[in-house]
Design a protein around this nucleic acid. Structure first.
Length: 525
RNA sequence: CGCGAGAUAGAGCAGCGGUAGCUCGUCGGGCUCAUAACCCGAAGGUCACAGGUUCGAUCCCUGUUCUCGCUACCA
């Protein structure tokens, strides 16, 4: 049964690009790339690059289109990045503008698990081919967990956007807000529904939404629903400071965006709204209009204040546009300006809204997230997790939802015959010895008493059990599995485990002690 | 095992040689146009741990622990 075979592979001579990579990354990107990205690239390059096999023996994948390459498929990190280019080509025949044009600034946004592929292997491929631009930066983020646990599509520990939109219609932007404000830019972060609620209610709507609303309400109450006159020559220091802040905000947000500090950039936008609130508070136009007489007397000051608040509001729309495009558009509609106002060049201007222009009635940009919604989402998350685990265990006939279980989910297996089942030689054995396999996190080497023989089985359970804790346990063994070498140790068979939804492993063993070597079989006639 | 990144108030982050700051939350007070914003004040941190360098360390050096990722194995 065990057959050792020679195989042939096609290699990419990564080693030949070591010098170039050293120059390009180690020297050239030292202070430019993020520490996590730079550090990993540097360590790879410093420790010496090897030619890397770009083909695999596998029955699925993209076949290698070369004579003599039957049965070979392309290594995923060879064909995936090429796929990015192909995908662009599918999308537009302007694809070369994105990938080949000299002055194109190409940026790869990825997660930390893919750093070396995007920074070393793919660029080396492009360099080897020639004619393609290299990434200017690869600002890899860390991971975002959900409620303290790693996202898992197969376990359905996830928030699906289509589901989200059913529960929170037209609220794309508040999710965008939370994801950006809480982005794992420097370390792993956690998405929790409570935090979602806090950030939406206390930051987005309380500060930004509230300012917008205050400006509109006051303008309608005190300025007849029209953009009041600025009276530029009557401005005071407060007014001039506010204008300065608007212009500063543009520069700050711009700088953050250029440096991929999206979290900080969003903060600056909110902070400008915060300054707007403060300005409004300090001027207190409502106090200046306590009585009609008083208002008449103060109308100029009121006009200046609200004029600037409204211009600030228009600026907020522009600054917000890269982060919350739907909201920016909504703001445009309320101000009755064309979408083109959102062009970045317009930021910092205080003549975005024309004097005497009538604006729409106040209407809230965001609504608060209720406690009940938070509870409901958390339950949903937990219930769906249980459901998907149950599906696996019971192997039900219920069709697996496409959204809930993408390709990697363990699908229901195809029907087999009794003969298929009977091919498997299942036997009971007892663990005599267990030890960690050197240089392997997950492997334990087990010696099993199979009654008539002692077997060595290598099993990937080291993360779950200490060797000393499992000695003496009876286990179910697939006894006729073809031997396989792992870390230099030949494994003869494998042991069966049940896995809980939480990932915990449980031995599958006889309820009472059985004879070692006894068969596990069906007993129907 | 090897390598990379991280560990700072309840949460999210900044600081990177002079005994800690910002946003949100919490508590108390003021104000009220508004989805309770804004102002004033308070509580809350042995800056993961242990050594070392220094007049002085969150910040530099060494070691350790923990988290995540990569490489290999995990049928």
């Amino acid at each position: 049964m065990p057959v050792k075979r020679k195989t042939k592979h096609w290699y990419f001579p990564l080693d030949k690009y070591e010098g170039w990579l050293k120059e390009w990354i180690v020297e050239g990107k030292k202070d430019e790339w993020k520490p996590n990205v730079y550090g990993q690239c540097k360590s790879w390059i410093d420790s010496g690059l090897q030619p890397r096999a770009m083909t695999r023996d596998s029955n699925w994948g993209v076949p290698v289109p070369l004579p003599g390459a039957e049965g070979k498929v392309l290594y995923v990190w060879f064909d995936a990045p090429i796929g990015y280019i192909s995908a662009t080509k599918e999308l537009t025949n302007q694809w070369a503008d994105y990938w080949c044009q000299e002055d194109t600034k190409l940026v790869h946004f990825i997660g930390k698990d893919n750093i070396v592929f995007h920074c070393i292997i793919f660029p080396a491929m492009l360099k080897a081919h020639g004619g393609f631009v290299l990434p200017e930066s690869v600002p890899a983020n860390e991971f975002l967990n959900i409620e303290g646990e790693k996202v898992s599509t197969s376990r359905n520990w996830a928030v699906w956007v289509d589901e989200y939109l059913k529960d929170f219609p037209d609220q794309q932007d508040v999710l965008r807000y939370v994801l950006c404000a809480n982005a794992p830019e420097t370390k792993d972060n956690d998405f929790t529904w409570k935090d979602f609620q806090d950030r939406v209610n206390n930051e987005l709507s309380a500060i930004l939404g509230n300012f917008e609303n205050r400006a509109f309400v006051l303008m309608h109450k005190l300025c007849k629903g029209r953009v009041p006159t600025l009276h530029a020559d009557a401005m005071n220091d407060m007014d001039r400071t506010l204008i300065q802040e608007i212009q500063n905000a543009k520069v700050k947000v711009e700088t953050c965006l250029e440096n991929y500090k999206f979290r900080d950039g969003l903060y600056e936008v909110i902070d400008l709204a915060r300054k707007g609130n403060k300005y409004l508070q300090e001027n207190a136009p409502w106090s200046l209009a306590k009585t009609p007489e008083l208002q008449l007397e103060n109308q100029q000051r009121i006009d200046i204040c609200l004029h600037l608040c409204l211009q600030l509001n228009a600026n907020l729309a522009i600054l917000l546009n890269p982060f919350l495009p739907f909201t920016a558009n909504k703001m445009c509609k309320k101000m009755k300006v064309v979408e083109r106002m959102l062009d970045w060049e317009n930021a910092g201007r205080i003549d975005l809204l024309k004097t005497n222009y009538p604006l729409l009635a106040p209407e809230l940009l965001f609504r608060k997230i209720e406690d009940t919604e938070v509870v409901a989402q958390m339950e949903k998350l937990k219930n769906n997790l249980v459901k998907s685990a149950a599906q696996k265990m019971e192997n039900t006939t219920e069709p697996v939802k496409a959204e809930a279980a993408p390709a990697e989910a363990p699908a229901k297996k195809a029907e087999i015959t009794y003969d298929d089942f009977a091919k498997i030689d299942l036997r009971v054995g007892t663990i005599l010895k267990a030890e960690k396999v050197e240089k392997a996190d997950k492997l334990l080497k087990l010696e099993l008493d199979m009654g008539t023989e002692i077997r060595t089985v290598v099993s990937g359970i080291a993360m779950h059990f200490k060797p000393e804790d499992i000695v003496g346990k009876q286990v179910t063994v697939v006894a006729n599995l073809a031997p396989r070498k792992m870390r230099g140790i030949e494994s003869n068979g494998m042991i069966l485990m049940a896995q809980n939804a939480d990932g915990r492993l449980i031995f599958v063993s006889p309820l009472e002690t059985a004879d070692n070597g006894s068969e596990v079989k069906s007993v129907i006639g």
